[in-house]
Amino acid sequence: MKAIGVILVGFLGGLLIYCSMDFPPWGDPHSPASSHVSPYYIEHTLEDTSVPNIVTSVLADYRGYDTMFETVVIFTAGIACIFLLRVFKAVEPETRLYRHLPTGITLRIAQGGKFPDDSDQFKRIDSDWVPHDIILQTTCRMIIPFIQIFALYVIAHGHHSPGGGFQGGVIFGASIILFAIAFDLRSAIKRMGERLTAFLCALGVLIYAGVGLVCMLYGNNFLDYSALADILGVDRISARSHGILMVEIGVGLAVMAVMVVLYYNLASAGKHDEGL
């Protein structure tokens, strides 16, 4: 079995290396991939959309449909993860661990005991004992706002520098995942609940499709943002760049929420009680 697999893989690799002789050499400006539609995109981006970042304009304008359904794929993956893993019957662990904050003593309270309320004095910790890591938590508390501002910058400045909805959304989601790792899953869910993340997943896709629909209501094609010129009060070329920004915000929201949903469900195997 192993030999057959190695032979198969080797045969495929040899075939591909043989075929690679027909490929264009590295960095060839006249390669087939760079000679049909791509010169049009490069030369006409500024006059069509007034967006200097060609990647953004191709992503959200020329190939808007493609990106919309990529967003739908991400949304579907998040929803599928919830459906596969989420356990709604909460099974509370029999013994809980609490940390008395002023002294740092860990209390193990068995079933039937009286659990203290989450207050300034006592804090519930995961059943795999975790040390009281004040350096980690303070560092994360200081660094997370800057990560989030950077994420918003990446989304908003995607027209003029590398960036956009996908990248910014992933950075924003990573900041919330960092919070959940540094503190614990419960305090992350307390700040950004399950309902909110699921709502943002759907909202992102809705913003994208909604912008397309508004264009259609104004008599243009679906996702032809020049129709927004009348609403925004700008000329038709700048309207395209504003439309791209709206769409990118939708993508960013959807991607951020899906990353958070995936982490919540995978880290706690759908129980949403204690994570990594």
Binding site: A33, S34, V37, S38, Y41, I42, I54, V55, V58, L59, R63, D66, T67, E70, V73, I74, A77, G78, A80, C81, L84, G164, F166, Q167, G169, V170, V255, V258, M259, L262, L266
Partner: peptide
């Protein structure tokens, strides 16, 4: 440089992460 492969792969990376989650 050709922006088209970058656009396609930009979405593919994020979709790969999401499908990896599934």
């Amino acid at each position: 440089i050709n922006p088209l492969p970058h656009v396609l792969m930009l979405t593919a990376i994020v979709v790969a992460v999401a499908t990896l989650g599934v």
